[in-house]
Amino acid sequence: MLKARIIPCLDVKDGRVVKGASFVNLRDAGDPVELARLYDAAGADELCFLDITASHENRGTLLDVVARTAECCFMPLTVGGGVRTIEDVRNLLLAGADKVAVNTAAVKNPEFIREAARKFGSQCIVVAVDAKRDGKQSAIRSGSGANRTRWEIFTHGGREPTGLDAIDFARRMAELGAGEILLTSMDQDGQKTGFDLALTRAIADAVPIPVIASGGVGTLEHMVEGVRDGHASAVLAASIFHFGEFSIEETKAYMRAAGIPVRVEEEKMQ
């Protein structure tokens, strides 16, 4: 049986992890490679690097980080942030990324997704969708009213509204050849009150490709909800892992107890 994936996400700026991490025994909390190694050993199912470097000039630093991570991590690595050209995708894949997440470029030029998927295969093209509840309804949080709710997608790290409907956009991306959707609720991001489940489910049920739920995890129950109620194939979180609130192992044990199929290698179980 296919397992729900647990994905820690590292925000990387100029080659360093920001929104620091507080692990015991961590020599350098800012080193993405060391964190990647820890998560690999802990049994994370995948890892995600989001490059939030403002300038495109520092691209070499990111490629170096990806290359050094690929040296020591034997799990899938997704890298996103500032991917604009086929050359950007190629460079990241050559450095050792397994998947590349595209956000702004997918909105500006949807054909870019078709071209990238054709060149490198759908399996490595992830479209990062940053969605926000339509203003008037932002206070409503009901699961059953999902089809009346509208979410708008934003680009440039959530700064630029696009007027585009998130569900239509996700469908279009899947048609163009995206292999996966990384869906972030901008309303929930950083709130620690859980995923926007109506959004997650609306998108997951609308597209044939896997959806990674992101934005808002504060408890392990939220991780369960993302899969069970949001229909996500994978759940992504940052701070609950980095600040040592929960380990990957605890997360998986909790989800498993809640009936979510997760990967637990038996030798790790006690």
């Binding site: 296919l2 759908s122 490709i209 194939s233």
Partner: peptide, 11 residues
């Protein structure tokens, strides 16, 4: 309801 691609960890 199963997604395509088959993506992730399987037994």
């Amino acid at each position: 309801a199963l997604k395509i691609p088959h993506m992730g960890w399987n037994e």
